[in-house]
Computed example of a mutant assay.
Amino acid sequence: MTDMPPAILPPASFQQRLLDWFDEHGRHDLPWQHDRSPYRVWVSEIMLQQTQVATVIPYFERFMTRFPDVASLAAADQDEVLHLWTGLGYYARGRNLHKAARVVVEEHGGAFPVHSLEAMAALPGIGRSTAGAIIAQSTGRRAVILDGNVKRVLTRLHAVEGWPGRPAVERRLWALAEHYTPDERLVDFTQAMMDLGATLCRRGQPACDRCPFEAACVAHARGEEKRFPESKPKKAVPTRATTMLLLQDRDGCVLLEQRPSSGLWGGLWSLPQFDDVEALQAWLDVHAPGSELAPAWTPFTHVFSHFRLEITPQPARIGRLDSVGEARCWYDPCDPASIGLAAPVKALLASLAPFSLTTTAGP
């Protein structure tokens, strides 16, 4: 098949095709499309990073019920914020959301600096594309976006070679996004670009026969839709192992400890973790002498973007623990506290019933 040059469409033609499609087929009734305040748009944009709309909707609605404005979010404890984020994944987003709320309140008088792309992009957890989306969606002012959906559309439309994470490729995509972004109907245009990538120009099975750019798409003309965008060069995904201590007291409460603010599960509450059962036993000998181990539960694997974590739950009954320390607490599975929990820990606690020392089954 002959190679085709990546012809650039006139902006007016691109915009007309896209907006005509959006008017008929786009998404017009998402929760954050009502009362499009910078706060609501911001929360939705952060939640939608690497997460599908259907998953985000119930989290967004619960979040808005508890934190209806940026002041209430800024005043909250991080634990409560992460508790509402539990299960949504990528917890750095939740931590940065909380930090950004406090910056908006303390440094911007409680008003998002939507007058300035640079000021918006400087807030924790907000980059250039997210800042553009917030400005365009909440104010209608011209701002350019380049999220994953938009990258996929533009990469296929022009058969842009190379992984979009490479600086040279990303610069090319930003230039194309700038070229096509209109001066009017910015709210609809930015939503339309995201909708096109999410509903038609999908990663695995693009619906080219329903796309308004079918006749203009270079990747489609070549029959190479699935080759674009090119994937990030793969590295071997390592596997790590950890033993999690399920230490229960006589009332069935479980000892939890808060993770450091950065790193894996930063700021969340987790079961104490050890390299192996010997290290776990050594800790018990020092901190909870007289505790007795039950048989370990069946190991299971939790997959992160850059490694796999093999978790072995190790139940134990406490002997004596004089003090839990500042970063630890007793958690009652039957009356759970509103704290942020790492996803596999939440699953373990939900399945936990007071066990005997002969318990062998896990969740």
Rank of each mutant, 00 (worst) to 15 (best):
D3A: 13
M4F: 07
M4E: 05
M4V: 07
P6D: 08
P10I: 05
E24F: 05
L30P: 01
Q33W: 06
D35Y: 05
S37I: 15
V41L: 07
W42L: 03
E45V: 01
E45K: 02
I46R: 14
L48I: 07
L48Y: 03
T51V: 01
T51S: 01
V53N: 11
T55G: 06
V56S: 04
P58D: 01
F60Y: 15
E61Y: 02
R62M: 06
F63A: 01
M64E: 14
T65I: 10
R66S: 04
F67W: 01
D69R: 00
A75V: 07
D77M: 13
L82Q: 04
H83D: 09
G89D: 03
L97D: 03
R102Q: 12
R102G: 12
R102M: 11
V105R: 07
V105F: 04
E107G: 09
F112W: 12
A119H: 09
A122S: 10
A122G: 11
L123C: 11
P124G: 09
G125Y: 07
S129A: 02
I135P: 03
Q137M: 12
Q137P: 08
S138V: 08
A143L: 12
V150D: 00
K151Y: 00
R156W: 00
L157W: 00
A159P: 01
P167L: 02
V169H: 00
V169N: 00
E170K: 07
L173I: 00
L173D: 00
W174V: 00
A175W: 02
A177T: 01
E178Y: 10
H179A: 04
D183A: 09
R185N: 13
L186Q: 10
D188M: 09
T199Q: 10
C208W: 09
C208I: 15
C211D: 11
A215T: 11
A215F: 06
V218D: 03
H220G: 05
G223W: 07
E224I: 05
K226T: 12
F228P: 00
P229C: 00
K232Q: 05
P233Q: 10
K235G: 14
K235W: 04
P238H: 09
P238K: 13
T243K: 05
L246E: 04
D251R: 12
C253N: 12
L255I: 05
L256H: 09
E257V: 12
Q258M: 12
Q258H: 14
G267P: 04
L268W: 03
S270I: 08
V277D: 06
A279H: 12
A282N: 09
A294R: 06
A296N: 14
A296W: 08
A296H: 10
V303K: 15
F304W: 06
S305M: 03
I311R: 02
R320S: 14
D322C: 10
S323P: 15
V324Q: 15
G325C: 08
G325F: 06
A327N: 15
R328F: 04
W330S: 01
Y331A: 08
P333H: 06
C334W: 14
P336K: 03
P336G: 02
A337G: 10
A337T: 07
A337F: 03
L341E: 06
L341G: 08
K346W: 11
L348W: 13
L349V: 13
S351D: 15
L357P: 02
T359G: 09
T360S: 13
G362R: 04
P363K: 15
P363Q: 13
P363N: 15
